[in-house]
């Protein structure tokens, strides 16, 4: 085909009709406190990995919640499981356990 110098981009909008929230629902069973998150950003503000990489735990669990799980496994490898996020969370979400369970679920464990 003749190259006209432009291309059609795939839509970048989040398509919630096609989002698969199955993993999120299964994750909630393993760590129910996750449902309480109100996106304050304390976890990602205090995160040791976040200061030097693009790792953002708040963004990761928001992606999980909306069923956008494609790149999560690679992202989650940056976490060192230090647990500071769990210490600061004002909603009492057990983030450290949540991350371990996310890794397991994404690897079909």
């Amino acid at each position: 085909m003749k190259d006209f110098g432009f291309a059609i981009e795939k839509p970048r909008a989040l398509d919630l009709d096609k989002a698969d929230r199955n993993l999120y629902v299964r994750l909630l069973k393993r760590e129910p406190s996750f449902a309480r998150c109100f996106q304050c950003g304390m976890c990602s503000a205090t995160c040791s990995a976040r200061n030097f990489t693009d790792y953002n735990i708040r963004r990761i669990h928001t992606l999980m919640r909306q069923g956008q799980t494609q790149e999560l496994d690679a992202m989650l490898q940056k976490c060192m499981l230090c647990g500071k996020c769990t210490l600061v969370c004002p909603r009492g979400v057990n983030l450290r356990h949540l991350i371990i369970q996310m890794r397991k679920l994404l690897n079909n464990e």
Partner: peptide
């Protein structure tokens, strides 16, 4: 939300947070 605050040598306060709308610490 501010996760921690500490004093600087000249008595000011340095704080850490995330701009959650930008997704940046």
């Amino acid at each position: 939300r501010i996760s921690e605050a500490a004093a600087t040598f000249d008595g000011r306060i340095q704080l850490k947070s995330e701009d959650t709308l930008l997704g940046l610490p």
